[in-house]
Design a protein around this nucleic acid. Structure first.
Lengths: 158, 158
DNA sequence: CCCCTTATGTTGCATTTGCAACAAAATGCA
DNA sequence: TGCATTTTGTTGCAAATGCAACATAAGGGG
């Protein structure tokens, strides 16, 4: 798993920031793809569906779409249609919201909960396999650098 | 830029690999989005178009689609349609391939070259701004860890 | 209360995508 | 050579997506 493609001169910029940018793009894409393929091979929905299910489960209560859109990093209309499809599969359901008659609350169904668990059984090992080449301390260092890189708060503080 | 959202307990896994996975997903998405928005605001095409133009320019000669698909990390049919659209804009052109009559060679046009440069003028500063919070040594360390994480060869060796 | 502005979601339509089926040239081999 | 297999790339069709326009409720003065 070490030395692949000895070909291609792959002219790489000397600027450290550009090198980090390229590495970030390539590795995240490759690793995401690995997990996505594992899920597809198992005839399971994709990562976005998982994230919706997980956020709802983690919230522990029916949640407004607008509160889900932020952690999901997606636009309202995208979430609207995503929920359409998931509701059709009976994984979530839209229930009335008393405080705000415009919207509604999204509730995880029993089927949705079960699917999230089934997906995790595939997701977790695939992630492990995709990333297993670094040690735990290295993984922590990597997470730290990434949070410093972006302007997203590191949930663990510095 | 430190303490945002004091809300949400944000239960985060203690497993270092999972923490790195989450950081990787969130940060790469956020940073990519920042650059994508900068390009869109400038009425320029997206990153994928840039990458095609850049790979062709870097190759320095007409190139087979199959040789582009690998660095682009995309499937043949995706590239086929991508080239359809770019050819319509006269950014690349399909020219005959003597060695293999099935396919063709992709050639960068003058217009394509100019567009790549115009995009870089927006792309580079946006990238800088999105990632400018880490120092150069940190950026190098980050790139190193990323290449160790994935199984993609680090163009700089270890 | 009425009206204007903002917030929250949804939808029509055109573009894009994924998948599987297809086409055609190259390759291997009997 | 003849013919099956592989490689390279494209396409029909259904599903998904982006964008802008829309619908409806909430909020905020006068």
């Amino acid at each position: 798993m070490q030395q692949t493609q000895p070909k291609s001169p792959t002219k790489i910029p000397s600027d450290p920031l550009q090198r980090a940018w390229i590495a970030l793009g390539r590795i995240s894409q490759s690793v995401q793809l690995h997990v996505a393929i594992a899920l597809k091979d198992a005839k399971l929905p994709d990562l976005q569906w998982y994230t919706v299910l997980w956020e709802l489960e983690r919230a522990g209560q029916p949640t407004r779409p607008k509160d889900l859109a932020v952690p999901l990093f997606i636009l309202p209309y995208q979430l609207s249609r995503l929920v359409d499809r998931m509701e059709k599969e009976e994984l979530v359901s839209r229930i009335d919201c008393e405080e705000d008659k415009r919207g509604h609350l999204l509730e995880l169904t029993v089927k949705g909960l079960a699917l999230r668990k089934a997906m995790w059984a595939v997701y977790a090992p695939a992630m492990q396999q995709a990333m297993g080449r670094i040690t735990d301390p290295e993984a922590l260092k990597l997470a730290e650098l990434l949070y410093k890189l972006g302007d997203i708060e590191n949930p663990h503080g510095s």
